[in-house]
Write a protein that binds this DNA or RNA. Structure first.
Lengths: 224, 224
DNA sequence: CGCCCTGTTGACAAAGGTCAACTAGCGTGG
DNA sequence: CCACGCTAGTTGACCTTTGTCAACAGGGCG
C-alpha cells in the first residue's frame, strides 16, 4: 500500500552490506554469500524442502507463507522480508524449511550453503553463536504455533495437542485458559473443541489432563 | 496438559548450562548471568518497561503475553518459554520490552544486565553477532504484527496501516490479498475494513493505494 | 465441610468467512 | 492504437463459527 516514498536500503555492494562488512570485504575478507536474482513471484525455497541454503535480502520483498496443508497459493502469509533480512536461517538448526519464500517483487538475494554460513559464523562455542543457535531454535518452535492462527478451533486444538505432547512443552500443567489464549481463542471455545474431539473418540479429556486415544483420528481432525 | 512424563532439561549448574559453557566456566571463565528465582505467577519483566536485563531460563515455565491495550491478565498469550530459552533479548536491539514475562511455575532464571550480555557476546563486527542482531531486529519487527492476531478486523487493519506506513515496509505494492493473509483475514474482509475506515474519514483508499487522512481517527480506530 | 477458583455447558448475538456477481485497471495481441 | 480479456479488488446476501453472558459443577485448600 502507499506507493513508496521512503527510499529502502539496498545493499548493492558488499562494501555497504552488513554481511559483506562482517565478512571483512575490503580488508581482504571474502563473503561466502553470492548474488542471485529472482523475478516477481518466483520461489526462493519451499516449505518442507531440504534446507541447504541461507539467504540475505539485498533488494526487493519476499513473502513467507506456510501452507498448513492449504492449497491456496498465498494462504497463511506469515511475514514480509525486505532488504537486510536473512531468509532460511532455519537451515542452521533443522533440515527442512519451515515456510515457503516467494519473491513479491524482483529481488536480489545473496545465498550461501549451510556449511559455508556455518564456517562464516565462527566457532560454535562462541557466546554469540550459542545465543544465535538458541534464538533460532526458539523461533522454529514458535512458528508452527503461529501457523495455528488459521483454521477452525478444533483444528487448532488438535494440532496443538499433537505437537505439544511429544515435546511435552508444558511441564504438565499449563492452565487451560493460558492454552486457550495461546491458541487465540477464549477458554469456552477451547473447552468446546476438546469436548468435540473427545466425542469423536480422538482424545480423552478431564479437567486436568488430555490423553490421546486415537492418534490417527486426531491427526485427521488436525487436517494432517 | 498431560502430566509431565518427560523429564525437562534443567541446567542446574553452570557447567551443564550452555550459557555457562559458552562463557568458559570450568576453564577459568566466569558467567555474566546470575541466578534468580521467581515464584509462580510472579513477573520477570513487563511490556513497555525499560529493557535492562536479559534472562535465561534454567528451570520452570514462563509465559509471554502482550496486552495490546487489553486489561485481561493473560489475554494475548504469545508463547511459553521453558528451560534453555532466552528471555528479553530485545534488550539488545531496543529500549523497552515487547512483552510481559510471567512465571507459570516456580522458575530459576539467570539474569544479566544488557551491557554485560553485550560484552559477553563479543565484538559487534563478528559475523555471528551481526546475524544475531539481524535476527533479533526481524523478530522485534514481526512480533507486533503477530499481536494483531487479536482484535476485530478493522482494528487489525488500522494497526497495520499505522505501523506499516512509517516503516513503509511494503516497497509500494504488496498485493492486497497478501496483506489480507498477513492479517489473518480474507481479502473481502480487508476490503470491507478499509471501506469502513474510509467511511469514517480516517483514510482514503483506492484500488492501489491507501492514504492516511486523519491519523488521530486512525489511531482511535486501532484502539491506541 | 464449605468456599473459591477453574473449567464446562447452554442460549444468543455478532463478526467474519463463503459464494456470487460485478468493475476497474492493466497487459496483450490484433 | 484500440479492444478484448484477464486478474485483483469490491460489494452484497447469507450462513457458519466464535465470542459473550450466565448458570453450573468438579477439585483443592483453608
Amino acid at each position: 500500500m502507499q506507493r513508496a516514498s521512503i527510499e529502502h536500503p539496498k545493499f548493492q555492494s558488499c562494501f555497504s552490506c552488513p554481511v559483506g562488512r562482517a565478512a571483512g570485504v575490503g580488508q581482504g575478507g571474502r563473503c561466502v554469500f553470492v548474488d542471485r536474482h529472482r523475478g516477481r513471484s518466483e520461489y526462493v525455497y519451499i516449505e518442507g524442502e531440504a534446507a541447504e541454503h541461507v539467504w540475505f535480502v539485498k533488494r526487493g520483498q519476499v513473502v513467507l507463507t506456510q501452507s498448513a496443508g492449504d492449497t491456496n497459493r498465498d494462504a497463511g502469509a506469515r511475514a514480509i522480508r525486505g532488504p537486510g533480512a536473512f531468509l532460511g536461517l532455519e537451515a542452521l538448526v533443522r533440515h527442512t524449511y519451515l515456510d515457503t519464500a516467494r519473491a513479491l517483487t524482483d529481488v536480489t538475494l545473496c545465498g550461501a550453503a549451510r556449511a559455508d554460513v556455518d564456517a562464516w559464523l565462527g566457532p560454535s562455542e562462541a557466546p554469540a553463536r550459542a545465543a544465535l543457535q538458541q534464538v533460532l531454535l526458539t523461533m522454529c518452535g514458535d512458528i508452527p504455533r503461529g501457523a495455528s492462527a488459521d483454521g477452525s478451533s478444533v483444528v487448532r486444538v488438535a494440532r496443538w495437542i499433537l505437537d505439544d505432547s511429544p515435546t511435552a512443552q508444558n511441564g504438565g500443567s499449563v492452565p487451560r485458559h493460558v492454552v486457550a489464549n495461546l491458541l487465540g481463542m477464549v477458554p469456552e471455545t477451547l473447552s468446546r473443541a476438546l469436548a468435540q474431539l473427545a466425542r469423536s473418540g480422538a482424545i480423552q479429556v478431564t479437567r486436568q489432563e488430555v490423553k490421546i486415544r486415537n492418534p490417527q483420528a486426531l491427526r485427521a481432525a488436525a487436517g494432517l
